[in-house]
């Protein structure tokens, strides 16, 4: 039956680049599964319990993501009643009984940017204050960069995860690449 096999192609073809000897590295995050969990009205208790059971996490609040102890699951509040679940494999289907689940994996492109100049590069496009005092590790925010909506998460001191719409992935990559080139 499967005469026509479909291949999955990362939006940016698995882009990865080291910028000379600057230590700056930009990489497409290809292994990411992204799931939106919308909290049913009046369903906070159930969702909280399920998230605890499934991921060992409490529900995140605005601006601060939660990372599971095994490092495999990150939860981010994206709207007052909506969470993004960043995992390496699909979330258990049982989540559908406590949340409205929408697979977002293919709707986004993820870029991992890291290196000593990461703040300088991002301050060319990111209006959010990324000072560690205001945006510590695990902080998360949705904002706009070069007209594109972006979810930015601080992974470590000099490393950020940037998620933006997959259809404009090339433009987004160009914006981030240019920002790095402009500061190194």
């Amino acid at each position: 039956m499967a005469k026509f096999d479909l291949q999955e192609t990362p939006r940016l073809g698995g882009y990865t680049k080291e910028f000379g000897d600057s230590g700056m590295v930009l990489r497409e995050i290809t292994e990411l599964v992204l799931t939106s969990l919308a909290m049913p009205m009046g369903g906070k208790t159930k969702l909280t319990a399920a998230v605890k059971d499934t991921f060992g996490l409490t529900l995140p609040t605005a601006l601060k993501s939660k990372l599971s102890t095994d490092g495999q699951t990150r939860l981010v509040q994206t709207q007052p009643d909506q969470y993004f679940c960043l995992t390496s494999k699909p979330v258990p289907s049982a989540m559908a009984s406590v949340a409205y689940v929408t697979d977002q994996t293919h709707g986004w492109v993820g870029l991992d940017i890291s290196g000593p100049n990461v703040r300088e590069a991002l301050e060319r496009i990111c209006p959010v204050d990324l000072d560690p005092s205001a945006f510590p590790v695990h902080a998360a925010a949705r904002t706009t960069m070069e007209h594109l909506g972006v979810l930015i998460i601080r992974v470590s001191k000099d490393q950020f995860c940037l998620l933006s719409a997959s259809s404009s992935a090339e433009s987004f990559l160009h914006a981030v690449e240019l920002s790095i080139k402009n500061v190194i």
Binding site: S36, A38, P40, M41, G42, D81, Q82, Y100, T102, D103, Q104, T105, H106, G107, W108, A165, S166, S167
Partner: peptide, 13 residues
């Protein structure tokens, strides 16, 4: 007070 949730999937498909 409606239980309704929206999310864009334009780019997902």
């Amino acid at each position: 007070n409606m239980d309704v949730h929206l999310i864009s999937t334009t780019d997902a498909w």
